[in-house]
Design a protein around this nucleic acid. Structure first.
Lengths: 179, 179
DNA sequence: ACCGTTGTGAACATGAGTGTTCACCTGCTG
DNA sequence: CAGCAGGTGAACACTCATGTTCACAACGGT
C-alpha cells in the first residue's frame, strides 16, 4: 500500500511538480490526512519518494555484475524497467538542494562512471568524457520513459531503442563520415 | 531590456519552475511592479517566455537550408547556441496545456521530422522511428546545455559533442557489435 | 520649466496550499 | 463485547505568492 502511494506520488509530482498534496492524495486514493500522517510535510514526502527511488536503483544495481561483458547493457535494460523513478531523482526541481540526497545520488553514479571509464579502454569511445557518456545514457532512458508514458513506444521495445541509439547513434551504417 | 528580461526569466524558471515572480523580478534587476506591468499574470509571463523562444527558434530555422547536405548538423549547431530556450519549450511543466502553444511547438517540429524522414533514405537509420530520432536530438541538446550551465562543458565544444554522440553513438569505432 | 512616460517601492486584499486538530467510522484482536 | 489502531472528512489558523492600487522619483521631449 505505502509502496503504491510512493509510486503514485512519483508519477503525479513528475507530471506536475507543483501539484498540491490534495492532488497526490486523491491520485493515490487516500485521504489528505492519511498522507500527512505518513509524511508530515511536503518536503518529507519528496524526500521519501527520492529515497525510495534510490533504494530501488540500488537493489537493481546489485543484480548487475559490473565486471561481466555487457554490464552496461544489462544495467540499462534493468533501469528502463524502473520507469520514472530515476527521472524523478535526476530531474525533480530542488532535489539537489538536499545535500544528503545529492550525496547519495553522486554515490549512485560513481560505480557506473568507473565502469564507463574502464570500458573506454575497450568498447567505448575515448574522445568523450565519462560523465558525458553517463549523461547520454540517462538521456536515452528519459526518452524511452517519456515515449512510453505518451503511449508512443512499447515498453518491450524500449531497451533495444535506448541501447541502439546510445551506443551506435542514429546515423545509418555506412554514414559515419560527417563533415 | 525587455529581451534580457525574458532571457533571465527563462533561466530562473527553468532552474526552479516554482520560483516566485519576486525571484524573477529580482534576478532581472527590475521591480516586481514593472514585471506585472509588462506581464499582467504569471501565466502571461510564461506564455511570453515560450513565445519568445519560439520566435528565436523560427528565426534560426529560417537560416538553415533544409535541402542542403548537412542540414541536420547545421540545425543542431545553431540550436545549441540558443541555449535554454528550446529546453524551456519542451520541458517546462504545464506548457503543453496551452493548446495554442502546443500547436506552435508541433508546427516547429514538423519540418525537422520531414527532414529526418527524408534522410532515413540515405544517412539515417531506417530501423528507428523519425520521432525517436528527433527526441534523441533534443536530448543531446539538453545534455549539452546542462553541462554548459554546470560549467563542465565549454560552449565551443558543445556542437561537436552533440553531433558525435547523437549520430555515431558512444561505442568505440570497431565495437558496434553488441549482443 | 512643464508634462507624459516609465519604473519603483509600499501597502493591501485575496486565494490557495499547508499543517494541525478533532470527532467519527471501520475493522481487528483479546 | 470492549478496546484499540488506523483511516477519514471537516474545520481551523497560518503562510505565502499573487494581483492591484497608489504615490513618488527619474527621465526625455516640448
Amino acid at each position: 500500500m505505502s509502496v503504491h502511494l510512493l509510486q503514485t506520488a512519483t508519477s503525479v509530482l513528475l507530471k506536475d511538480p507543483t501539484a498540491s498534496l490534495s492532488d497526490v492524495a486523491r491520485a493515490a486514493g487516500v485521504g489528505r490526512t492519511t498522507l500527512h500522517n505518513r509524511f508530515p510535510t511536503r518536503a518529507a514526502l519528496v524526500r521519501a519518494v527520492a529515497s525510495d527511488a534510490l533504494d530501488l536503483i540500488y537493489s537493481v544495481a546489485r543484480q548487475v555484475d559490473f565486471d561481466a561483458d555487457g554490464a552496461l547493457e544489462d544495467l540499462v535494460t534493468r533501469l528502463v524497467a524502473l520507469g520514472p523513478r530515476v527521472e524523478f531523482l535526476l530531474r525533480f526541481p530542488g532535489l539537489e538542494r538536499d545535500e544528503e540526497l545529492a550525496a547519495r545520488i553522486r554515490e549512485m553514479d560513481r560505480p557506473v562512471l568507473d565502469l564507463i571509464t574502464r570500458l573506454q579502454g575497450t568498447t567505448l569511445r575515448r574522445d568523450l568524457p565519462a560523465w558525458w557518456i553517463l549523461q547520454t545514457l540517462y538521456a536515452g532512458l528519459f526518452n524511452a520513459w517519456e515515449a512510453i508514458s505518451d503511449g508512443r513506444l512499447a515498453p518491450l521495445d524500449a531497451p533495444r531503442f535506448v541501447l541502439t541509439t546510445v551506443f551506435e547513434g542514429v546515423a545509418g551504417a555506412g554514414a559515419t563520415d560527417r563533415a
